[in-house]
Structures are given as structure tokens and as C-alpha cells.
Design a protein around this nucleic acid. Structure first.
Length: 364
DNA sequence: TAGGCCATCTGGTCCT
DNA sequence: AGGACCAGATGGCCTA
């Protein structure tokens, strides 16, 4: 780190700020940190505090200015470079010398801040975990990365909003393409696997279709993709090749699709393996066309038409008045009886109040 | 070994 | 003044 600091001109301010801790052979500081942190700590607290003061940041100045006059305990500020009478005084609040008490207070303050920051990040990660559970392809053992989780969630929301808007069922291929937009190859494979698609198939098709799917003015046609649940034949669907939770989730998708479009609810995923809330299983059958978007938007190329029946999360409310949602598996599963006639869905999309809210997210 | 991902520390900024 | 939030920096772990 020191090497980098001193070799990189862009880091000169940092070097200057931390000047004075070139000698990082302190042992006491390391001990102090060990109470509070894991490996990954690089800058000694004491040194940082010294650097802070020496650097003359506004915060440091205000702290110093706020301090009561204290006994000086031999710690020469700024290396004793300023001697009144010999050099012009610096402007601004007079710097106080670092006393042992002040150093201790600074340490304590920094430790408390570190603890709060850890807690905050843990909360953030916890929320991210919850998000992972409600987007497609949840797996306890093979978690999506943070960025991939956010991307997938965004695509998922987009897909759902389009389905609500259009009231039509998209074909599976288009749906997966939307979900996978901007995702890394491994995540794309995972999503495709969850939805029982060979990722190569739809990626190839995506290339062939060019901008047809994603251009601002695009409207894509129905893909008569011969989708069928193949959990018995698909390698990704077999639990032997997947983590248990993943397998369960995959089953949920397969079964939901089957139950809705083959009219045959599978009892198999009345599984208790999965502890968390199920992602809204999606069943796709239809096509959609996209809405014009601001071309300046980074997501401008997204325009799709979706439609689907989907099962809501347990306890969640239907997003549209007359759409009937159910939850597969543990929560009772989706039965074809619960699915509204297709024409009903067409009738409701224009009065679904959530649509505007949902799309405001994408079309701001 | 390089690159991706992650946890943590840290200082700055803004808000209450 | 203190807390929340943020972004940069850093080192550890894992995988191709």
C-alpha cells in the first residue's frame, strides 16, 4: 500500500494526509484495532488521527477548535514545525496538540463509527438477501452477487410491469431474455437453467434477432418456443446437479408453468426444503410490444410486451384487481382454477393502478 | 496468477 | 455533536 501511495501521483494528497505514518511498525495500534476489526484494516488509528489533524481537514479543525485547553503532553504538533515568532502564523483555528486523552477519544469515536458502519452494511446485505429470495433463481448455496441481484431484480420488475401493462403472456424466451438483460454469463446461465432454457438457445436467438427485442421501437413477435417443463430431463433441473434450494426453486418454476399451462398442478413441490418466501413463479405465454422510451435512458432499449399469470408471494396482495394469484408449493400452489380466463387479463391492464407506479420506475 | 467479489476501515459530507 | 450515508482504499478469499 505504501508503495502504491508513494508511486501514484494521484494519491499524493493521501500521502500527504497520512504523512507521518510512514513508519508503520506500530504494535500498539494493531492491538487496539484488533478489538474492533477484521483483517482489511490498513491505516493505524493513531496514525490516522494524527494525519487527520495534520491534514487540517475542516472536521479536524472544528474538533480541535472545540476542545478545551488541555495540558500538552509532549506530543509535538506538526512535528514542531511552527514556532511562534519565527514563522508566520497560519490562519484558521489554532491547532491543538494531540493529548493522550484526545487520542483516546478519537479512537473511541472511530471505533464506534466503524461499528455503526459494519451494522449498516450488515443490514444492507440482509436486505439484499431478502431481495435474492424474491427474484427468480434463488439459491442459498450459489448466491447471486450483489450487482447481479440488483440487475436481475430490475429486469424482473420491468418484466412484471410490462406484463401488468399489456395483460398478455410473453413467451418464455422473451421473458428470459428480459430477465437476463445485462447479466453476466454465469447468471444468465443460472436464470436460463431455472427457467428450463438452454441459455445458448436464447442467447443465439437474441443475437439473431438483433435489436428486434430490445430496440426502442422494437416489438417482438411470438416465439413458438416449444417450451415444456423438463425437470426430468434437464440437467439443470436435476437436484444432483444443483444445490437443494436451487433445485426446489427450479421445481417451483417448472411446476407453476405446468400447472398453469398444462392444467396440471404438481404436488411435488410441496416441499419444505425451501424455507424462505418463494419467488413469484412466472408463467409465460404471449407476446408483447414495447413502449417507447427515452432514448437517453440507459435502459432505453428495453421495450417488451409481456403477459403472464403469476403467483404472488405469500401474503401479498394481487397487483391487479381481477388477477388471481396463488402460491405454489407450500402455500397451496397454483391451480388452473385460479387462473383467470385469458380475456379477463386483457380487460384489466388498463385499470391496474399499479402500472403507472411500476413503470415510473423505469420511465422516469 | 489475474480478476471478481466481498468485508472492513476511513474520511468527507449532509442532516438532525 | 453525533449519526447516516457515501465512496475510495485495501486485503482476503475464491475460481478460472
Amino acid at each position: 500500500m505504501l508503495t502504491r501511495l508513494f508511486s501514484d501521483p494521484s494519491l499524493l494528497p493521501e500521502v500527504q494526509k497520512y504523512s507521518g505514518w510512514v513508519d508503520d511498525s506500530e504494535s500498539e495500534d494493531s492491538k487496539a484495532k484488533d478489538d474492533d476489526q477484521e483483517p482489511g484494516c490498513h491505516l493505524p488509528d493513531d496514525d490516522l488521527e494524527d494525519g487527520d489533524l495534520r491534514g487540517g481537514s475542516s472536521r479536524a479543525h472544528s474538533e480541535i477548535a472545540g476542545e478545551d485547553e488541555e495540558e500538552e503532553e509532549g506530543e509535538e504538533e506538526d512535528g514542531g514545525e511552527e514556532t511562534e515568532g519565527e514563522r508566520p502564523k497560519k490562519r484558521g483555528p489554532k491547532k491543538r496538540k494531540m493529548t493522550q486523552a484526545r487520542i483516546e477519544r478519537s479512537k473511541l469515536r472511530r471505533q464506534k463509527a466503524n461499528a455503526r458502519e459494519r451494522t449498516r452494511m450488515h443490514d444492507l446485505n440482509s436486505a439484499l438477501d431478502n431481495l435474492r429470495k424474491v427474484v427468480p433463481c434463488y439459491s442459498k448455496t450459489q448466491k447471486l452477487s450483489k450487482i447481479e441481484t440488483l440487475r436481475l431484480a430490475k429486469n424482473y420488475i420491468w418484466a412484471l410491469s410490462e406484463i401488468l401493462r399489456s395483460g398478455k403472456r410473453p413467451d418464455l424466451m422473451s421473458y428470459v431474455q428480459t430477465l437476463c438483460k445485462g447479466l453476466s454469463q454465469p447468471t444468465t446461465n443460472l436464470v436460463a437453467g431455472c427457467l428450463q432454457l438452454n441459455s445458448r438457445n436464447f442467447l443465439t436467438e437474441q443475437c439473431q434477432e438483433g435489436g428486434r427485442f430490445h430496440g426502442p421501437n422494437s416489438s417482438f413477435s411470438m416465439h413458438p418456443y416449444p417450451y415444456q417443463c423438463s425437470r426430468l430431463s434437464s440437467p439443470q433441473c436435476q437436484s444432483g446437479n444443483m444445490p437443494p434450494s436451487h433445485s426446489v426453486r427450479t421445481h417451483a418454476y417448472c411446476s407453476t408453468y405446468e400447472s398453469l399451462y398444462a392444467g396440471n398442478a404438481s404436488p411435488e413441490y410441496n416441499s419444505s426444503e425451501y424455507e424462505g418466501p418463494l419467488s413469484p413463479p412466472l408463467c409465460i405465454n404471449g407476446n408483447f410490444s414495447l413502449k417507447q422510451q427515452d432514448s437517453s435512458s440507459p435502459d432505453a432499449e428495453k421495450s417488451y410486451h409481456y403477459s403472464m399469470h403469476y403467483a404472488a408471494l405469500p401474503g401479498s396482495r394481487p397487483a391487479a384487481p381481477n388477477l388471481v394469484f396463488g402460491s405454489p408449493g407450500v402455500r397451496g400452489g397454483v391451480h388452473s382454477d385460479n387462473v383467470l380466463p385469458y380475456h379477463d387479463m386483457h380487460l384489466h391492464h388498463d385499470r391496474a393502478p399499479m402500472y403507472e407506479e411500476l413503470n415510473a420506475f423505469f420511465h422516469n
